[in-house]
Design a protein around this nucleic acid. Structure first.
Lengths: 310, 310
DNA sequence: TCACCTCATGAAAGGTATTTTCGGACCGGT
DNA sequence: ACCGGTCCGAAAATACCTTTCATGAGGTGA
């Protein structure tokens, strides 16, 4: 593509000269230039302006057919619009289509309805959870987090109490802590939790995870741990709940809007997991000397379970 | 795959992985597919993912030169990424570039460093996970999801196989399914999983969750379930992995960028949970008559555990 | 270690899409 | 009717994309 001779009407496209390949201002450009176009070119220009996405999918021949003109005319139109040829106009059309598609995205704010098609369910869920993450991150008290991380880093032993979905979050944390050499447990049985809590003493850490802040089966072991001198942390959506009475540090999770199909208790999981991840990374940073080798060691050890050939 | 036992190989041909031209999920797609690419293709894939705008401006020959490969390799890469040829990849690149230009491409957050203050850790983690959600949602194959939901809704019994962190995701799903009246299990013990799988038959559903797609302990029970006629679903980050051979439906989770403190396997959890949530909501919608009362019933039943005074 | 096999790879052939050329159709004026 | 001009599309010429195929690197088994 060098500076070859242009067609006879080279002078014509000097008019919109100094016009760089227009990205999104294409519609406007079409409007200003249409009057100076010939009839066939106008048809082409209107077609591309009216349906950028559809036109971008067509070849020069296809667009010529759709507009009832010839390939040559399509190329000439592309030139007038300021592109070196149809190829480049086509790229610009694809870009334009993507741009305006991105523009109308925020239609996902409504609740998930019973009759939503799955594609919308996916979009809404992803959006809600992302929102939840942002809320949690914004509301998280860094000082409390710092304190909790400090306690964990020096802990002899860590207990995590949680029931139901929160217990899964607790186990997630435990799995991670184990990988960097800490001793951690997340008993699912409330009685076992209390039994464990009794063993804790100063220097140990107990973490309770409960969205409502009022789950008796979780409060109880935390209280016991608290009374035995352990450092206690509560991860809850209700920082003023009963659980806070027995927590040295409270980490607040955000509460997403509820909906019938997706109650608050369910969406709290996302928030809790973020907090738990932050705790983990914080501890990993502070104990990096020990943590880094321990991390690689556990991946090494698991490698053959993933690929027996190794 | 020559003539074998009839049931041993009904694998990939049932799921032709009809991947539609990915619009904005290209970066994520590259990440999930790069591991299965050859070296030269990886160079090409990384070039397009790293500089969509720049790459879109190049012809096959140009891109081949820039990546130090041949035209053939570029075309092959485009195919792997799900496009019919380079031409279409190029259009998608232009679209992607426009999209992220319009969306004010969020400054690519650097990896989490050992010396990041906690506040930044929180922000980065939240951002990464949100990104992961968006990627997953964009790349999720709705048809596969639909099929999986359909199978689940009609299932007599559901088994979920997963190990380690993936097992927790499985348990999360099981907890939810139980609440709407399905019979579900997520055995953590691989032997128990196989034992369970043997009990499955046509009309039952088995779901395997593994990021790597190669976890032997998860593949095995899914294979058994597959061979016993159950409908099988794989939730994995490697849709081409061994696990896919035994899966009627494959749901692809996206792979986040790795970092030393937060390996890919760890961040896959977010993605898996989103998929699992979508499955749940889908099933709840389709069995609404049964699900809605069951949901309220379980909350009622738990109420006194949260506030004994009631 | 070596023979053998597999598969990734790029050079070049083969096709398609785009661009250019070229001549005819049309229009208004003489 | 003829002439000078513009507009237009068919088809040739070219640029670009795709496919084929031979080659050699890297791995496998003896």
């Amino acid at each position: 593509m060098s500076s070859k001779l242009k067609e006879t009407f080279t002078a014509a496209d000097r008019a919109p000269a100094a016009t760089p390949p227009a990205p999104g201002a294409l519609a406007a450009k079409v409007r200003t230039l249409v009057p100076s176009m010939t009839r066939s070119m106008q048809r082409v220009a209107e077609a591309v302006a009216g349906d950028p996405a559809g036109s971008a999918a067509l070849t020069v021949t296809g667009l010529a057919e759709r507009t009832g003109t010839s390939e040559a005319t399509v190329v000439r139109t592309a030139r007038i619009l300021g592109y070196p040829g149809y190829r480049d106009l086509r790229l610009a059309l694809a870009a334009l289509a993507a741009e305006q598609a991105a523009g109308r995205a925020p239609a996902v704010t409504a609740d998930i309805a019973v009759d939503d098609p799955l594609a919308r369910v996916v979009a809404k869920l992803a959006h809600e959870e992302a929102q939840c993450l942002a809320d949690t991150a914004a509301a998280l008290d860094t000082a409390q987090l710092e304190a909790a991380v400090g306690a964990l880093s020096a802990a002899r032993r860590v207990d995590v109490y949680g029931i139901g979905a929160s217990n899964l979050v607790g186990q997630d944390l435990v799995q991670k802590l184990l990988r960097i050499g800490l001793i951690a447990h997340a008993p699912a049985d409330p009685h076992l939790a209390v039994t464990n809590a009794v063993q804790l003493r100063a220097g140990d850490v107990a973490i309770a995870i409960t969205h409502s802040g009022r789950t008796t089966d979780v409060i109880e072991p935390l209280r016991v741990a608290f009374e035995h001198g352990a450092t206690t942390v509560a991860i809850t959506g209700r920082p003023d709940g009963e659980i806070a009475q027995y927590a040295d540090h409270v980490l607040t999770t955000s509460t997403a809007r509820e909906s019938e199909l997706r109650p608050a208790a369910m969406s709290s999981r996302t928030s809790q997991l973020l907090v738990v991840d932050c705790l983990f990374i914080g501890v990993a940073q502070r104990t990096y000397e020990r943590a880094a080798p321990a991390l690689s060691a556990s991946y090494e050890a698991l490698a053959h379970r993933h690929d027996p050939r190794r």
